[in-house]
Design a protein around this nucleic acid. Sequence first.
RNA 1: GUCGGGUUCGUCUAAAUGGAUUAGGACAUCACCCUUUCACGGUGAAAACAGGAGUUCAAUUCUCCUACCCGAUACCA
Length: 510
Amino acid sequence: MSQKEVRVRFAPSPTGPLHIGGVRTALYNYLFAKKHNGSMVLRIEDTDQNRFVQGAEDYVLESLNWCGIEFDEGVHKGGPYGPYKQSERKELYKGYAEKLIESGDAYYAFDTTEELESLRKKLETKKAANTSYSSFCRMEMVNSLTLNDQEVQLKIDSGVPYVIRFKMPENKEVRFTDIIRGDVVVNTSTLDDKVLFKSDGMPTYHLANIVDDYLMKISHVIRGEEWLPSLPLHVLLYKAFGWENKMPQFAHMPLTLKPDGKGKLSKRDGDRLGFPVFPLEWKNPQSGEMSSGFRESGYFPEAFINILAFLGWNPGTEQEIFSMDELIQAFSLERVGKAGSRFDPEKAKWYNHQYLIKKSNEELTQLYQPILKEKDIVCSDEYVSSIVGLIKERANFVTDFWEQSFFFFEAPVEYDAKMIKKGWKENTTEILNAFLSKSEGLEKYTFNNLEIAVKSVLEEKETGMGQLMMPLRLVLVGSGKGPGVIEIMELLGKEEVNNRIRTGISNIKI
RNA sequence: GUCGGGUUCGUCUAAAUGGAUUAGGACAUCACCCUUUCACGGUGAAAACAGGAGUUCAAUUCUCCUACCCGAUACCA
């Protein structure tokens, strides 16, 4: 690897919300840059004004910010190679396109949409090896290769729309090395004369991308595998511009697939798959349709990043929980796999659980309090913290807390029928009453004292633990779930426990 | 169709440079233990080298073929 400074870029187009595959691309770029003390650039590729979506750019920024992925330069903060939005660089590209015309690597083309369509149909019915605008048919089309200079100039001067196409060399082998894929060879005869400059005055992705990467001194292009097929064109463009020795190194990442393995994850999948595909909630400005986000679903950004990092990469050790700093330390493109990976929602939950149980009760309390507030429940941090300590092991998300702990804040209004059938016997009322009087007599309502009370009731009544604990849980919680009964009683306090026992006794009938 | 990429348990994946592995781990599944609840946790079980040729003393690892999957084939990125 060369000694030159590492500079990478993340270059989304603002055509909608960033999905998890996009976030992963940004993440890998970030990890690589940080690992090599390099810089990370955020460039907005908005060369297609038809597909522009309001709010998409802010969404990208907010998402990456939530993930903890930071940029050194970019649209939002400027930098020495700005502007970082391609629409603001519009004037720049035409000159580069014309340069290629002068050098004979590109040409003007005046063909209309209809002409192009009939060409395609013709080639398809002929079952031609190459069904696109290429060296095989370019001499039959209306372009500056078939027209003389005056004719071309006349058309341009009179305002006839034109595009600039790359003149793909014939039957030449293009070789390149991809950090992830290794050596790839493609024959130019299978490639077409891609449009570099559109009739609306904007460059296409291919031109803008190469020009900007060169101008912004990008050293490594890390992007999705869907770009691999156009890499030969890009390599040829670097050569045509005479920038071959400045060409970045390429790494094409495997795609993120849907859980069923059919196709790459795309923005249109929304919530259909039963889990978010977006980092943040997204409201489609056109349809008003909402798509859920990982953030709103209760994922911690650290967990989200960890999950994404492991989709297609792994450190080669058995460690699975990595902080961002640890990821930076351990990351390398060489350990990125070649095959696409499916997103597994189940494992994602597990990751979140790992981060959840690592957090302190105090921190979780601060996250839980707003949820309680929404339910008009006001409790001290101390009380909530004790509850959190009791339930966090059994939750994947903070949003799971309520159903794990509602009974600490309100008495049960229903009793699980199955549990009644299982645990409520003829003598249950008698046993509960016995415990009730012990409970009423307790001065200090502590775990130890409660345990003693329980034991003495069991001795007096000559009965088993289950005869008391099951009904007790039922009247306190309403179901057969939750932390230990004694822990619950200790937190609930004497008065509340006694009340619940009384209402339970009068409400539960066999 | 054409071109390119890919293929280890259901899923994510590990196993320097071909050589011993019961092909390892994690998630999910199942069983048992713990807990007289539900989870968590612990122990264990089941579970994979796509198929076929070849090279080699030896192939999951190299080559070729087939199958399947993915991507690209736009004046979209």
